[in-house]
Design a protein around this nucleic acid. Sequence first.
RNA 1: GCCGGAGUGGCGGAAUUGGUAGACGCAAGGGACUUAAAAUCCCUCGUCCCCAAAGGGCGUGCCGGUUCGAGUCCGGCCUUCGGCACCA
Length: 872
Amino acid sequence: MEERYDPQTVELKWQKYWIERNIFKTDPDTSKEKFYCLEMFPYPSGKIHMGHVRNYAIGDVIARYKRMRGYNIIHPMGWDAFGMPAENAAIKEGIHPAKWTYENIAYMKKQLNQLGLGYDWDREVTTCSPDYYKWNQWFFLKMYEKGLAYRKSSFVNWCPSCMTVLANEQVIDNGCWRCDTAVIKKELEQWFFRTTHYAEDLLKACDELKGWPEKVVLMQKNWIGKSEGLEADFKVAGMDERIRIFTTRADTLFGATFICLAPTHQLTEKLASDKEALRKVKEHYGKVDEKVGFFTGRYAINPANDEKIPIYIANFVLMEYGTGAIMSVPAHDQRDFEFAKKYELPIKIVIMPENSELQTSNSELNAAFEDEGILVDSSSYSRLRSDVARIEIAKHIEKKGLGKRVINYKLRDWGISRQRYWGTPIPIIYCEKCGVVPVPEQELPVILPEDVKFTGTGGSPLTDSAKFLDVNCPQCKGKARRETDTMDTFVDSSWYFIGYCFTKGKINFNSELSTSPPFNPPLGRGGQRGDSFEISYWMPVDQYIGGVEHAVLHLLYSRFFTRVIKDIGITGFDEPFTNLLTQGMVCKETLKCPEHGWLFPEDVKDEKCTKCGKPIERGRVEKMSKSKKNVIDPDYLINKYGADTSRLFSLFAAPPERDLEWSDQGVEGAYRFLNRTWGIVFKNSHKLRVTSYELKNENKNLSLVTRHSSPLLRKTHQTIKRVTNDIEREYHFNTAIAALMELVNEITSFESRTDDDWRVLKFSIETLLLLLSPFSPHISEELWEATGNKPSILERAWPSWNENIAKEEEIELVIQINGKVRAKLMAPAGLSDAEVQNRALDEQKIKEIIGQKTLKKIFVVKGKLVNIVIGD
RNA sequence: GCCGGAGUGGCGGAAUUGGUAGACGCAAGGGACUUAAAAUCCCUCGUCCCCAAAGGGCGUGCCGGUUCGAGUCCGGCCUUCGGCACCA
C-alpha cells in the first residue's frame, strides 16, 4: 500500500473494477425487495455543473446504502436531450443539433463515471433518439384516440426571442423560463393535452403524497387551484342573449353594479359597436399594469333583483378562466373597485363586518371589503352571514334555472406545440380532403429530417423541408402535409422513468398492451421476465431526487402522464414517485468590481481588482452561475482532490434539502479527513492484514472488551447506530459524516497493545470503511482491500450495532437548581430516580447552594439530568 | 397582496420527544517538528465580569406568555429567502 493517498490512481482502479464486474447491472430478482433510486436526468448542455454533482452524489449514497441493506437496486441515468440550446448551437456554429448533443452526452457520461456514480448504463435513455421519441408519438396517438390530445385556436404565450409558444408553467414573472424575454399573447392553432381531465384526481391524490416535501405538495395544490362557485346567467336587455358569469362570492350578487367581459369573449363583437375601443382593450389584454375597459352601450339584468346594470369589456378579465365574464362587485372586490373608481361606476355595499362599521372616508370606501361579514341591502338575504348566504343565493339561482353551482380549476390544458426543430415531431397529417389525420401507428416514428438549414430566422426549419412536409394522406392517398410543430420537451421527461424499466433500454409499450392485464402481477410469479413484469416490479420510483425548480412543471406533467399511461391500460398505479427529495441549490460568494462587474476569484488580489486596482465588493452568496462568475468546475475539483472528496464535501456542508454554500477551505477539510483515514490504515496495515477477526458474529465483540479497548468498541457501535439513523432519518448525510469524523478522531488516538486490541482496532477500521463507502466509495474499496479484505465492499452487508455495547456505562449527570446548571458528576447508567436524587443532594456544591432553603420539588430525567426546585 | 420556509459563535452547521446550547468541520491564535516553509501533530477558541484561577452574569432575530425547565410550544412583531399573483 502506498503511503500517500493519490485519489486519481485509486479512483481509476475502482471505476475500472466496477465496470469490468458489471457491479451496477440491474436484475429483476423477485426474491428480493426492490428499490428504485432515481435522480432527475440532465440536459446535455456540455459539461456537468456542481448542482449535478450534488444531486447525483445524494442519489448514489442512497443507492449504495440501500444495496448494502439488501435491496435489489435499479439506479439508471439518461439524457433529456431535446431542447433549444442544441438548436441555438446549430444556428451559431453550424453544428447539427444531433452531433452537438451526442458529443455533449459522451463527455458528460465520462464525467459522471469519473464521479464513481453507480449507474446501470444498459438502461440509459436518450430522448432525442428515434427509439425513444417514437413513444412520445405513440402516446400522442393513444391520447388523440381518447380525446386527451386535441387541437384548438387560442391566445398563447409567445416568446419573441425563442420564436415559440410557452406553456403557462413556463412563463415566469411574465418572462420566458429560458431567456427571460417578456412574453406576449398570440393567437395560434395549437395541440393540447387535456390535463384538466385529471384536475380533481391530481388534486385529491396530493394528500396521498406522504413522502413528498409539504412545500412541493402545496405548490402542486395551488397550481391546480380548485375553487367552488356559482355560474349565473345575466340576460342582455333588449337582445335574445345571455351572459354567463362565474363567481365564488354569490353572497355579493346584490352588490353587482356592472358586468365585465373578456375582450375575446364570444359576445364582444356582437355587443360592442366601438371597434376601435375594443382593439385598444385587446392590446392591454394579459398585461398586469393597468385596468382598461369601455362601456358597450348595452345593459344586463341581474338575476337576483332584476336590476339593469351596464356591460363593459375589460382587459383584466381572462377568457381562459371561468366563463370569460364576471359580475363586478366593486364594494367587495379590489379589482372591480379599482375599475369602478376609474370609470366612475356605482359602488354598492352589501356586506358589513360582523362587529364594526366599514372604514369609509367621505362616506365612500377607500378599498374593497373582501372579508366575510353580514349581508345588508340584499332583499330577504339581509342579516345572513356571508358564508351561509353564499349557499342560499346559489341554491335560489339554481332553482330558478338561471345558473348552477360549479367547480373551477386554475390548471389549464397543457399546450405542447413548439415551433422548433429539435423536438419530437407531432404525428399528424393535414389533408385537404380528410382534414386532420393521425399518422398510422405502424408508420412511427416520424423521424426528424437531417438535411435542414438552421438560419435562425423565420421559425422552424421543418417548415422549409419539402422532404418532411410533403406526404400522402394515409386515408385518401391524396396530397397532404405534415404538422411541422414539435412537442414541448417536457413530454420527453414525463415518462422516462418508466422507460428505464425496459430491459437493455429497449422500450416497447405495444407488448405491454397485449400482455399486461391483469395489472400488478404478484411478486414472485415464477420465471416471468416480460417487460410488463419489469414495470410493475420496479415502479413506482421509491426515491426521486432533484431540484425544487421542477416542483410544478416536471412533477405535475409526470403525474399526469402516469395517469394517462394507466388509463391506456399499461400500468396499474397513479403516482410515479413515492418519495421525493428536493435538494437545495449550490451557492457561492460573488465578487464585483465597480468598473468591471462580476469577477472570478483569480481576478482579485488583496481585495482589489487585478484589472483596474479598485477595491472589490464581496457580494451576496448566490446560486452558482456562469454569468456571475461564481462557479466551480467539477473537472477542476476531480483533478485536484478526486471524486471522493468532491462527493464528501457536497454531502457534508449542509443537509440535502438546504442550500449549500461552497467553501474552498471546506473542501480542503474533507480532503484532510480522507487523508487521515488513509493514514490510519497505512500506519497499521501490516498488523491489520494478519489480524484475523470474524466480523459476522456481533456478540463476539463482547469477549474482546478490555479496559483499554472498550471505549473504542463502544464508539464504533455508537457510530453504526448514528450513521444508520441519520441516513434513515431524512437522509441527513452531514451529521452522518460528522459521526464518521468523530470515529476517525477516536481511532487516531487509540494505541493497540494486545492482540485483542488489534482485533478491536481492525473491527473499528473495517466498520468505518463500510460506513464511509456510500459517501466516498473509491477510497473505501482501496482501504478495504488494504486491510486484507476481498473486494467489493459494496457487496458487504451494512453493519449493525449491538445496543448493549453501544450504551454508555457511565453517564454525565447534570444537576440543575431552579433550571440552572450548577454541577455535573459522573454516575453509572441505570440508577433509580431515588439514587440519582440522593447523589445530587450529596454533591458538595449543591449542598452549599441549597443551604437553609426549602426543597420544593425534584425532577429527574432518566440518564440525563436532575432539576432541584428550591424556595427562598 | 396571498401562501410557505428560514433566522443559533468570526463562518458552514449540530442539538431525534420540552431536559447540559454550540457536535463535526472551517477560519483564527498559540505551541511541537523543520535550517526554513508547506504538510502533519498538540492546545485554546460564544460573550462579559475577574490580574489569574475558582466562580459568576448574559446568550439561539425582537417583545410577551405557558412550564420546575423553552433554540424547541403559544401569541404578537421584525428581517430574509422561495412560490403564486388580475384565477373573479
